[in-house]
Amino acid sequence: MGHPLKRPDALLGDKGYDSNPNRTELRQRGILPVISRKGQPGIQGLGKLRYFVEQTFACCTSSRASPSGENVASTSMVPSSP
């Protein structure tokens, strides 16, 4: 059961996702596509938002870098000095 799914009102995307099939699919799902067209100026301020989101993901996943919890440098193949 769980909570009902929540859809965003709009989706911000960069020019890499500018295609009519992407826009059509979003509209069919009731989501407003906010995607810059290729060859046109970009959306003002989108870079700052994207940086914030990418840094948040990096922060959240950084604790999963090493499954054993050890420092990656301590498990390197470089022989220790005698």
Rank of each mutant, 00 (worst) to 15 (best):
G2Y: 00
H3L: 14
K6I: 15
R7N: 09
P8R: 10
P8F: 02
P8K: 08
A10I: 13
L11F: 07
L12C: 05
L12W: 11
L12N: 04
G13F: 01
G13C: 08
G13M: 15
D14C: 04
K15G: 04
Y17N: 01
D18V: 03
D18H: 01
S19I: 04
N20Q: 12
N20S: 07
P21Y: 10
P21S: 07
N22M: 07
N22S: 03
R23Q: 11
R23F: 00
E25Y: 09
E25A: 13
E25W: 14
L26C: 03
L26E: 04
R27E: 13
Q28R: 15
Q28S: 09
R29C: 10
R29N: 07
I31P: 02
I31V: 15
L32F: 06
P33A: 07
P33F: 08
V34H: 02
V34T: 03
I35L: 09
I35P: 03
S36C: 03
S36D: 02
K38C: 03
K38E: 08
K38Y: 01
K38R: 15
K38P: 00
Q40L: 05
P41G: 00
P41F: 00
I43Q: 02
I43M: 05
L46P: 00
L46I: 15
L46R: 02
L46F: 14
G47S: 12
G47W: 00
K48P: 00
K48C: 11
L49T: 12
L49Y: 08
R50W: 07
R50P: 02
F52R: 14
V53T: 11
V53R: 12
V53W: 15
E54P: 01
E54T: 09
E54D: 09
T56H: 10
T56M: 11
F57H: 11
F57P: 01
A58W: 02
A58L: 08
A58V: 08
C60R: 15
C60I: 13
C60E: 08
T61P: 00
S62H: 10
S62N: 12
S62T: 14
S63E: 08
S63N: 07
S63P: 01
R64C: 06
A65L: 15
S68G: 05
E70G: 04
E70W: 06
N71A: 04
V72Y: 05
V72W: 06
A73C: 04
A73F: 05
S74F: 08
S74T: 15
T75L: 14
T75E: 10
S76C: 11
M77S: 12
M77D: 13
V78L: 08
V78R: 14
P79H: 04
P79W: 08
S80V: 10
S81Y: 00
S81I: 01
S81N: 06
S81R: 03
P82K: 03
P82I: 01
P82Q: 03
